[in-house]
Amino acid sequence: MRHSTATADLPDRLWQAVVDGDEYGAVDIVHKAVADGVDEETLLLDVIAPVQARVGVEWAADRITVAQEHAVTAINERVIASLSHRRPARERRAPHQGRVTVSCIDGEWHALPARLVAEVLHLRGWQVDYLGAQTPTPHLVSHLHHTNPDAVLLSGSIPTRLPTAHAAITACQAVGILVLAGGRAFGADGRYARALGADQWAADARGAAAVLEVGLVRPRPAAIRQVTDDLPHLADQEYTMVVQSRVQLVKQTLVGLETSFPVSRGYDDAQRERTAEDIGHIVDFLATALYVDDPEMFTSFLTWAADILEARHVPARSVVTGLDILADQLREFPRTVDLIDAGRAVLRGRPTRPAPEFGTRA
């Protein structure tokens, strides 16, 4: 039961508290809701989760700063901890469903979605080992050897970490552990989870709980797969070449922009650094799109990036200019050029509109 009437105004009230930096006020709001009969799962998924999602929207629209974004996330994490710790010992349900590990993939610093999953599974009777953000794959596998869980739940919000996620999925399965993938990085429909060989995918915490409750069949230990077993298009080596050339691609594109986009010549050091970071993100998403062989991975990011720039009063045409320079450097790689062409076409044909939320933020 989600107490829709009782929780109707809670997200707005919690948002105001956290964006004001009022940690104690935020804790009071959710604790009073519990006292009023709102169950913890509802608070986690229908109140705290929407507030956290709003962080990305507000940052993208340039209505909050990066520092505020970090502060809001930190307060939300402490609010979740306060909910977990407030229950009297007699009300804590002993684990009876089994044992699972919940972890972010290496390089993934958005840990709050995984924390929400861990808390919901604990409420539903699972023993949960929550490993948090940026867990290196070798350490994750070592943990699995020691604990022998029924499944590992891998969380990812940053699409450019998908190649790392692929390695983690393969490594976990090689020691006989079923992998349930979730998070925005794997696609709204789970397409990338399937492409990378995950055993299951879930859109959210309730979905993950439902998958686990259906029943798990432990896979047999399998030989380590090569990435080309799942993604045969990688045999062309274009992904590898782009990744290995990243530093040079960013440097040459930055130099080229000064010629093709004259306003950039007047940038100060901070603006030049930020422009280099933006070019780096473009190269990273280009490489990831090559890895999963999906133009939408690249075009969705470019549309989002253009909207972000416009929200900050930077002409989005600079992105097209940067793509032109990249295409010239990568003209000998046909799959790469096709992706860049798709990106240029989308940007040239897009209307100007407010910035949406995306899976990774600067």
Rank of each mutant, 00 (worst) to 15 (best):
residue 311 A to E: 11
residue 211 V to W: 05
residue 279 I to A: 08
residue 38 V to M: 07
residue 146 H to L: 12
residue 23 E to K: 14
residue 288 T to G: 00
residue 301 F to I: 03
residue 278 D to P: 01
residue 346 V to F: 02
residue 94 A to F: 03
residue 233 H to L: 11
residue 100 V to Y: 11
residue 17 A to N: 02
residue 136 P to C: 06
residue 232 P to A: 12
residue 315 P to N: 06
residue 332 E to T: 14
residue 200 Q to K: 08
residue 260 S to Y: 08
residue 324 D to T: 13
residue 175 V to C: 04
residue 173 Q to W: 00
residue 11 P to H: 06
residue 187 G to R: 00
residue 189 D to E: 13
residue 166 H to S: 00
residue 4 S to Q: 07
residue 190 G to E: 05
residue 12 D to I: 01
residue 139 H to W: 05
residue 210 A to R: 15
residue 360 T to F: 15
residue 92 R to V: 15
residue 73 T to S: 14
residue 342 A to K: 08
residue 55 V to T: 14
residue 343 G to I: 08
residue 215 G to H: 07
residue 87 R to Y: 07
residue 155 S to V: 07
residue 286 L to D: 06
residue 213 E to I: 00
residue 14 L to M: 15
residue 89 A to W: 11
residue 274 R to T: 04
residue 153 L to Y: 05
residue 43 L to D: 07
residue 138 P to D: 00
residue 1 M to T: 05
residue 147 T to A: 11
residue 254 L to Q: 04
residue 255 V to M: 10
residue 280 G to W: 14
residue 23 E to F: 10
residue 259 T to S: 12
residue 14 L to K: 09
residue 351 P to T: 14
residue 218 R to G: 10
residue 361 R to L: 15
residue 335 R to I: 02
residue 280 G to K: 13
residue 93 R to S: 11
residue 25 G to P: 08
residue 251 K to A: 15
residue 255 V to T: 11
residue 147 T to C: 08
residue 55 V to L: 11
residue 66 V to N: 04
residue 145 H to Y: 14
residue 205 A to H: 10
residue 21 G to S: 06
residue 354 P to C: 03
residue 120 V to K: 03
residue 112 L to R: 10
residue 183 G to Q: 05
residue 21 G to F: 09
residue 285 F to K: 01
residue 171 A to T: 02
residue 221 P to M: 13
residue 63 R to V: 08
residue 24 Y to I: 11
residue 61 A to N: 14
residue 298 F to C: 11
residue 99 R to C: 08
residue 126 W to H: 10
residue 113 P to Q: 04
residue 290 L to G: 07
residue 114 A to N: 06
residue 129 D to V: 13
residue 218 R to I: 06
residue 15 W to D: 02
residue 247 V to N: 12
residue 61 A to F: 01
residue 23 E to G: 05
residue 30 V to N: 00
residue 66 V to C: 01
residue 78 R to A: 09
residue 357 E to H: 10
residue 64 I to F: 07
residue 41 E to W: 03
residue 302 L to N: 08
residue 241 M to D: 10
residue 107 G to V: 00
residue 320 V to E: 12
residue 354 P to W: 02
residue 333 F to T: 08
residue 338 D to W: 11
residue 118 A to I: 02
residue 306 A to V: 10
residue 193 A to G: 12
residue 212 L to I: 09
residue 220 R to Q: 14
residue 87 R to G: 00
residue 328 D to A: 13
residue 157 S to I: 00
residue 237 Q to R: 13
residue 166 H to C: 00
residue 47 V to W: 07
residue 76 N to K: 01
residue 74 A to F: 09
residue 83 L to I: 08
residue 152 V to K: 01
residue 40 E to D: 12
residue 30 V to I: 09
residue 50 P to E: 04
